[in-house]
Every structure is written in C-alpha cells, then in structure tokens.
C-alpha cells in the first residue's frame, strides 16, 4: 500500500479498517461546515440606539458573557460585522443611517430586532419613530421586551444560530424579496409629504 503523506502510515488500515488511522477526522458536507463556522464566529456590529443598547452591553459584559458563543467581538465597523443588533427605537432621522450601515455590511448578514421599539414602534406610536425596523431592513429574529433582558437577547441569538445552521448558505435576501427595499410611506399626520425609506435608485 502506498504511503499517503496526509494520513501517515496507512499500512494498518487493511488490517484494522478506519480504526487504524493515526489521525482523527470528521466527515461532513461542506455546506454544514460553512454554516457551522458561521454560527460559531458571528460578530455583531455595535448598533446601540437607546435603552436596549445598555442591555446589549450587559449581555456582552462579564456576568452574562456573550463570548460563550464567540460573539463578544462587537465590531465598530459594519464591514467587519455579520450581525446587526438593532437595539432601540429607530427615529425618522436615524432610519437612513441605519439603512446605510446595513448596506455597508458584507453578505452574509443578519439582523436581530431587539426590543419592541425596534420591532414595532412599541409604546411610541407617533410622528417621530419608524414603526418597526423591518420596514427598512429585513429582520431575522425579533426579541421581545422593553428592554429585553440579557437572557432574552441570548435566546434570540441562539434562535438565529439555529436558523443559520438550518438555512441555505447561498441565499441572497434581495432576490428573495425579503424586507429590504420595501417602500414605506411614513405618515407624519399633517403634511402631505412622505418620507420614503428603502431601496435607492
């Protein structure tokens, strides 16, 4: 039997089968491997807006320790981040900024809408807030609460991990027609003018 450089001495394979290998190895589909590595090194972008940002920071700090899932590396630059945790209320003035940050993130990217204000406007149903961040960016997981406690956020993150592990790896959300790009008329009550947020020409 020829000697394979990777496997080392293979002479005992014929006698002992796979148990005769010198090295341990795993078998699996490349797709699973990609998905597995994506979930184990998901870096969030710092997108703290309001109250929820404090709970997001608390989740990252010593007591709740987000690094147990390899996620403590909050990236200040959206280009290095995989996940945007929209933590807090999104105002009309902030909405274009949020969309721009999202656009600057590299695919694949995910969004967690943290707290009721980001998810639906929460208790502030008025002229100033975007009623749900899913009108601007596609949201993968909604975390309920005002603000969601660190446990809720961790649960949301684990849900997202599960989603990534069980989803497709080459899906592009723009083609799927998901969330992003929806034109929203934000009624400000008095004037006929409308703020259009969404896909730019």
């Amino acid at each position: 039997m020829p000697k394979l450089p990777i496997l080392g001495d293979t002479s005992s394979i014929s006698e002992n089968g796979l148990a005769g290998f010198d090295h341990n190895f795993l078998t699996g589909k490349i797709e699973d491997l990609v998905k597995w590595s994506r979930t184990r090194s998901m870096w969030p972008a710092t997108f703290g807006l309001a109250c929820c940002a404090l709970e997001m920071m608390a989740t990252g700090a010593a007591h709740y320790d987000l690094s147990r899932w390899g996620m403590e590396v909050f990236r200040a630059s959206p280009r290095q981040a995989d996940l945007m945790i929209v933590a807090g209320r999104v105002s009309q003035k902030m909405a274009p900024v949020l969309r721009q940050v999202y656009d600057q993130m590299m695919e694949p990217k995910w969004v967690i809408s943290m707290g009721v204000c980001a998810s639906s406007g929460g208790m502030f149903n008025n002229y100033a807030l975007v009623q749900g961040v899913d009108q601007i960016v596609p949201v993968d997981v909604y975390a309920p609460g005002c603000p969601p406690g660190p446990e809720t956020l961790m649960h949301a993150i684990l849900q997202l991990h599960e989603k990534v592990e069980n989803g497709e790896i080459t899906r592009r959300r723009q083609e799927m027609g998901a969330g992003a790009g929806i034109m929203v008329e934000q009624r400000d009550g008095q004037t006929a003018s409308k703020v259009i947020i969404g896909k730019r020409e």
Partner: peptide, 21 residues
C-alpha cells in the same frame, strides 16, 4: 435628534398614571 422619540407628544396622550411609563 437621532433618537427623537416624540415623548412629549406621547405624554399628552397618556394619563397621569401612565405618564411614568
């Protein structure tokens, strides 16, 4: 103004008991 929430306007819609919320 990037976090303007219109709380003073919302405050006019909520009763005094709901105000602290």
């Amino acid at each position: 103004g990037y976090l303007h929430t219109g709380m003073e306007k919302t405050g006019e819609q909520l009763s005094f008991l709901q105000g602290p919320t």
